[in-house]
Design a protein around this nucleic acid. Structure first.
Lengths: 226, 226
DNA sequence: GTCTATAAACAGATAGAC
DNA sequence: GTCTATCTGTTTATAGAC
């Protein structure tokens, strides 16, 4: 078995520290190996906690899985901040503002999804849920996925001069996000093909550059349509 | 456990039929549940074959996994045909031809990745390999991934008037493919958000339309650069 | 709250009958 | 080539000591 080199090695010390350590360890392991392939022993050992504590804190493996989903929602909402929790996008926002917001959001998403280590864990965890939905998917879908997509659609509609709930708008937003996600999930292939050893700040900047170029190009073409 | 509704229910009859039935069943199950979460008993039962036949034909679970990777390469090369196995893209191909080829390739990729059921299994299988590479990834990477990407880069370079091995070219091709892959892996979220019950021919056409629009828009913008 | 011991089920591999 | 029986190890969940 390969050695485990996780960043979530928080040892259990104070009260409820065990709880958090278990969630962090479980998130990494569920993401990397999947729910069923992950054993509670492995989680407890990674979290430097006891096996019995999983039953105590979460009722069992399944409860721990649900807690991971909740943790993901809280983490993303914590990072996204007002970008997600702020007031609705006003319909009379100047288009230049919408473009600027879209660009900054894409830059932040690349930073989180592609460059940050937690991004990888979270993306993989969500991917597994999308492939085989459980109750955890609802938590994540309504917690971050739908609000994020709605917000991006609103910005895109203003920036491109289209309707925020038009099929083309929603699908285009999916393509914008999809291209970013791919750099995380296909990271192994991208690295091989690009000759990159790791995907750090420099590589992320190159990805942002291409993503920004694409955004502007598609936006310009959509504007011409109307 | 959820009922298994696979298209790969070929019963074992003639000689070597067992072999193929096992590969098909394993591919579906490995893709859906992952390597470790899939039991050899489950595979044998789905393939309507005996457990012992896995050891006989493939030496064990791992050999069956490797055979699945080989099967994926053969399947894709069979579908892609001359688009993958044909002669190299000549550097003096007319740009309009390159654009037309790119558009038709994207259309075919959407058809396979998004709409065909085997597309889902294969994408998921490859995704798991990318997340946690084994020997199977090498088979797939050198069998289809790298040749496909190289070919798309060559076409893109001609169509956009850039260098086929420039970083921007290779990254742009990744974004073009990435946006398509996302519609498969994020299918559950896309369906929910779009209000689609399934993703069939009609929905695939809408995706092709957006992907084609993006392709043309980015291409037009890249051409203006030079 | 944390830990150990154990129970009941299930895994992959294999040997050998047919 | 196919199938059954069985071995050895590992899984989750639980009961109860501390």
């Amino acid at each position: 078995m390969a050695a485990i080199s996780t960043t979530a090695q928080t040892p259990a010390t104070g009260p409820d520290q065990t709880r958090l350590a278990l969630i962090r360890a479980a998130l990494v392991l569920f993401a990397r190996n999947g729910y069923e392939a992950t054993t509670t022993r492995e989680i407890a050992s990674t979290a430097k906690a006891n096996i019995g504590s999983i039953a105590y804190h979460f009722g069992g493996k399944e409860g721990l899985h649900a807690a991971c989903a909740q943790h993901i929602v809280e983490t993303i909402r914590g990072i996204a901040g007002e970008a997600l929790d702020g007031p609705d996008i006003p319909a009379d926002l100047p288009p230049e503002m919408a473009v600027a917001l879209l660009e900054s959001l894409i830059e932040r998403m690349v930073g989180f999804i592609v460059a940050r280590p937690e991004g990888g864990e979270i993306v993989q965890f969500v991917l597994r849920e999308l492939n085989r939905p459980t109750a955890a998917l609802n938590t994540i879908y309504y917690g971050v996925f739908e609000p994020t997509h709605k917000r991006l659609c609103a910005l895109w509609a203003i920036a491109s001069g289209s309707e925020r709930d038009a099929d083309a708008t929603m699908l285009t937003v999916f393509t914008l996000v999809g291209q970013l996600v791919y750099f995380r999930i296909g990271r192994e292939a991208v690295s091989r093909r690009m000759g990159w050893k790791t995907i750090g700040a420099e590589e992320a900047a190159a990805i942002v550059e291409v993503a920004r170029f694409n955004l502007r190009a598609i936006l310009a073409a959509r504007r011409k349509e109307t």
